[in-house]
Amino acid sequence: MKIKIGSSEFKNPIFAASGTFGYGEEFSRIIDINKLGAIVTKAVTLKPRKGNEGLRIAETPAGMINRIGLENVGLDAFINEKLKFLSSLKTGIIINIAGETKNEYVALAKVLGGLAGIHALEVNVSCPNVEKGGIEFSQDLIQFKELIKAVRKATEMPLIVKLSPSAGDILTFAKLARDEGVDAITVSNTFKASLIDTKSQKIYIQGGLSGPAIFPLALSNVIQVCKNIDIPVIASGGIHSVDTALQFFIAGAKAVQIGTFNFIQPDIALQIIKGITTFMREKKLSSINQIIGSLP
């Protein structure tokens, strides 16, 4: 089940998605997280962030909307308090980085890209650029390209870009990222979503939708991107079973990330690893690569 992204090798292609696994500590108390292919950490920003005020999550049919606001301990505390535990694990460690300016991303990439025990960086581009009037890096082709170019220059560590599905044509962004030399792209982040409170007639919540509800939407994007791009695609969005993970692999994803369903079923990643092993044995396949991209 081994796969490679850039120069890093992962023992299997089942990862935990950013923001749904913290820095690993909580889940390590109830499951053997060393079995995962990799953990993508909660986003790390240069300075600590308090996150959003008010309601942060809401349940929708087979989904969840969140607006956490990238609450995290910041780079220094991450290195001093969280990295030691992560480095002690026998699983791949991918650090998700986020910033408010291009320079913040570059600073994060320079520091984290030079540390041992980290196998890749994943760039979260769904953040408002405060220097460009708060338009998300993921929404504007020019600032997206400049950001990726700068981060790529800042580090030689394997670099993944996590795309937003709410920025128009996801393929255009995927091609831009590829042209700037990233090692893989994650398709994709949450879908922009809202709920209105009919009693007050005001917005109840506005954030990103995740969970089983988005699986077919994410799959459609993964199919499109995999057909047209030759660098590794990491699929993420609504995985809730062995079958949904397999669909992503058949579509061409080299790895998958499990997100919200970790909350519902904390051992879902382990069940999927087991299920795919069984699937491969039954089909007499010796490598996961025989499944990846098998869609005609």
């Binding site: 923001g19 749904t20 696994f21 913290g22 909580e26 889940f27 308090k50 996150g51 005020e53 309601l55 942060r56 999550i57 809401a58 349940e59 969840m64 969140n66 956490i68 609450e71 919200t260 970790n262 909350f263």
Partner: peptide, 25 residues
């Protein structure tokens, strides 16, 4: 609170508190 994970991972269930003279979640 409405909770996403119950374990401190999703950070959805905040309460505003006063801590050492500052407001924190």
């Amino acid at each position: 609170r409405i909770m996403g994970c119950g374990m401190g991972v999703c950070q959805g269930c905040t309460v505003k508190v006063k801590e050492k003279g500052r407001l924190n979640n």
